[in-house]
Amino acid sequence: MTDMTADAKRGPAAADHSEGMSYLETLPRRLVTLYLPLSIILIVLLFPFYWMALTAIKPDEQLLDLERFNPFWTWTPTWKHVSKLLFETHYPLWLWNTMFVAITSTILSIIASVLAAYAIVRLRYRGAQWVGGAIFLAYLVPPSILFIPLSTVVFQYGLFDTPFALILTYPTILIPFSTWLLMGYFKTIPFELEECALIDGASRWQILTKIVMPLAVPGLISAFIFCFTLCWNEFIYALTFISSTQHKTVPVAIVNEFVDGDIYRWGSLMAGALVGSLPLVVLYAFFVEHYVSAMTGAVKE
């Protein structure tokens, strides 16, 4: 993670320092000031996932009977809910929809952001600073203000209930932040490199693709993860603009489809929530360092 790279850069002095401070503290003291509060917070943060996972594999009769079965554990796990989810519902289709929408709009947004960020930082056209500020402000316009007029816009453009309703609207959430993020990365790339290339006769496009982009790969990855997560998470647009079952995304579909009239299928609901979270968890398992550094804007690699 960031701390490792940071430590590595700061060299032995930094490492010494953290050891140096902690020798002042005895173990019991650290137990009370560090480990105890930390474990309480961790338990609270992780309990809902444990509960989700447990509910997903509990047989139905144990779910609603807290007296005869210890609710915190089950000795008879069942794959019924998960297999019902995967084989008897449209769940795989919803996963595919979500994936498709998320990837397409992420790619669109990143292309747009790279161009915009580069133009703002390096072309420095007239008014670039103001445009940069405006784009950042755009990030602060929340979807819950926009969804009502956007729904009429989506009707007007004839996009209602198609994946394009989402693919084209998600970039409005994604572009501002990723542009902002990439601007930070591009700024760190030395000007001299570009100047040399310009003198050698490279076009701006060549500079962008051959020099700047390769150097900004970590930033691109962060932006990609960020965009992808936001898409996967998005709810209100998907709820409003999509109406038929076969076009829904996972978050909306789960809420709507696992409540059969007046019966809640808690097992399947939880299984659906768990499986729906997995792609992101996997993504983060591989790229967590990038993500952390991206969020902080501490991008001075």
């Binding site: 609603l64 009977d65 409540v259 009239g261 007046d262 019966i263 809640y264």
Partner: peptide, 12 residues
């Protein structure tokens, strides 16, 4: 309660 809650509570 929504439409589902009383079913659940009655059956339990």
């Amino acid at each position: 309660w929504n439409d589902a809650f009383n079913n659940k509570a009655f059956l339990a």
